[in-house]
Computed example of a mutant assay.
Amino acid sequence: MTNLHVDIVSDIACPWCAIGYARLEQAMATLAGELELDIEWHAFELNPNPESKPQPILQALSRKYGRSEAEMEAAQANMIEVATGLGLNFSKMQERYTANTFNGHRLVKWAAEQGKQTAMKQALFDAYFGHAENVEDTEVLLRCVESIGLDTEAAQQVLDSDAFADAVRSDEARYQQAGVSSVPAFIVNNQYLISGAQEPAYLVEALREIAQQK
């Protein structure tokens, strides 16, 4: 069986990142027994200023893209439909507030050392999009840790320190310098870039083609 390494550059606050990974999971299921994917998550922050005050998401997106809140609500409704079809919980997507995700990314790095990087990422996606929880809040972060069976006391020690801060900043600098300006971005075998939340069928064919290049 052929093995491919996939680096996923994403943000916890990015709905298309959650959708993109769910589509990748479907592609992986199709490719089971043919290709094996080794996944590694990397940090990207849509709201990198830790001092910015949380804003209602529709208001913030309207300001960012210069479109009406009604237009943004319609766009979000489309994403909710897509996500629901993939089995994701996006039920509170339009009730969420903007959030700085730096500490969440640190916990994803920490969880990686215990083989639960993807589970941590998915728990954070669910908290933010499914429950409109504040993923800057320590209690929310620790509940996510507990939900995947990791030690909340150890996670609290991470949050109380600067642990993994350099790793998160290194990710952000590395991929910014590499030209990644939007997420999700899937880099396969450090060579091939797949941008955006592509459909499972597209991913299957792209990954097969890449595997043939090895």
Rank of each mutant, 00 (worst) to 15 (best):
His42Gln: 10
Glu73Ser: 15
Leu37His: 03
Glu45Arg: 14
Trp41Ser: 09
Ile39Cys: 01
Ile80Leu: 04
Lys116Met: 07
Met72Val: 09
Gln122Phe: 03
Met93Asn: 15
Ser147Gly: 11
Tyr128Phe: 15
Ala154Thr: 07
Thr118His: 08
Asp126His: 11
Gln117Glu: 15
Lys92Tyr: 04
Pro56Glu: 14
Ala132Asp: 09
Val145Thr: 10
Gly20Ile: 00
Val135Phe: 03
Ala127Cys: 05
Ala132Cys: 10
Trp41Cys: 05
Arg96Val: 02
Asp151Arg: 07
Tyr128Gly: 00
Phe129Ser: 00
Gln55Thr: 14
Ala43Thr: 08
Leu159Thr: 13
Gln26Arg: 15
Trp110Cys: 08
Leu142Arg: 04
Thr98Asp: 09
Glu146Pro: 11
Ala22Cys: 07
Pro54Ala: 10
Glu81Gln: 09
Met28Pro: 01
Leu142Val: 02
Val108Arg: 04
Trp41His: 11
Glu136Leu: 00
Ser161Glu: 14
Leu24Cys: 02
Asp38Tyr: 05
Leu86Pro: 10
Thr84Ser: 13
His105Glu: 00
Leu141Asn: 07
Ala123Pro: 09
Ala43Gln: 01
Asn103Val: 00
Ser62Gln: 10
Phe44Met: 09
Arg96Trp: 01
Tyr128Ile: 05
Lys109Arg: 11
Ala127Glu: 06
Gln157Trp: 01
Thr98Cys: 03
Glu25Gln: 14
Lys121Glu: 11
Ala74Phe: 03
Gly33Trp: 05
Gly33Asn: 11
Tyr21Val: 12
Leu107Lys: 03
Val82Asp: 06
Lys53Asn: 11
Asp126Gly: 00
Thr138Trp: 05
Tyr65Cys: 07
Ser147Cys: 07
Lys116Val: 09
Glu113Trp: 02
Met79Tyr: 07
Asp151Phe: 08
Lys64Ala: 00
Phe44Val: 05
Leu35Gly: 07
His131Thr: 07
Glu139Asn: 15
Trp110Met: 01
Glu69Lys: 12
Glu51Ala: 15
Ala154Val: 03
Glu40Ile: 13
Glu45Phe: 04
Trp110Arg: 03
Glu51Asp: 14
Glu40Met: 12
Glu69Val: 15
Leu37Ile: 12
Glu139Gly: 14
Arg63Phe: 10
Thr84Ile: 07
Phe102Met: 04
Val158Gln: 13
Asp126Cys: 00
